[in-house]
Amino acid sequence: MAAELGPRAMFVAGGTDLFPKLKRRQFEVDSLIGLDFLPRAIRNRSDECVIDAGVTLAHASHDPHLNERFSGYAQAAGHVSSPPLRNAGTIGGNLCVDTRCNYYDMTYEWRKAAGFCLKKDGDICLVAPSSPRCWAVSSSDTAPMAIALDGLVTLVGASGERELPVTALYRDDGDRYMAKQPDEVVTCLRLRRSLNTRSAYVKLRRRGSIDFPIAGAAVAVELDGDRVESCRIVLSAVASYPLEAKAAEEFLKGRRLQEDVIREAAEIASKPAKPLDNADLSHFWRKRMVRVVVEQALARVSDQQPGLDG
């Protein structure tokens, strides 16, 4: 159906991202395809957990099994927006949530007054006018965590079903940020890590609720004794896609998660983050804070200390 309707149709799950954008005319569509028919179960198996795309964020954040084995994921889901939005918003929708920019997330009238930008109706980027691309920010809380936990998504579309790593869902382009085909539906997310995986998500935002992340660190480590066997660190809200801090991951391998190591790893992890002036607070400060959230996430997996968000 989506394939037949083409680009003037969109999927809608919880609608928490989509409906406000329709009102602001950021999306202009003729048809919405409701995804209510998608299953909404969390299936726990011995070595993995499969979460249907229709599962709400509230459900995921409260699920005991997820909290126990993939606590970072449950934390990330529990830090999205506010309780009413988590009751409606789905984990599938959160993986596909639009990128953000405070020149773009405005009403039609405001964008018309500011001058349209290339993500919608215009042809230049207002944040980086000399750049040919859009730098809107990937703002999903759960996507970085799903990547850190080696998540796989199942996509179903006109040309069949396929499974791919969550990383492969995204492109480094604020405008066309999804790598999947527009007619493909995310049907489930599969999280797999061994039993001794520890994970944590630390989110920075101005207020205790509602706000999108302005920086975030999703960390998953596997320990061999007290040394890091493998680890993944993925940053939210500092690029147009969930940004993996590969150098820091390499650095941590084989080391103990002690204070100086954590500090150095966080320093390395923050290097590739290049926030721009299109989100809350100054980008200088946000850049500085990347180190802090990574440190806190690592500290949390090392001794389960709470981070910025308690």
């Binding site: 506010s82 405070n102 997330d105 405005m106 009403t107 405001w110 007054a113 500011a114 101005r206 207020r207 205790g208 609720s209 509602i210 706000d211 809350d280």
Partner: peptide
């Protein structure tokens, strides 16, 4: 910013929530 109100919306104009 550039002659416009930077964030005429309740999400972007930050005012404390109960949690704050």
């Amino acid at each position: 910013r550039k002659g416009l109100h930077k964030w005429p919306s309740m999400l972007e104009y930050k005012s404390p929530t109960f949690l704050d």
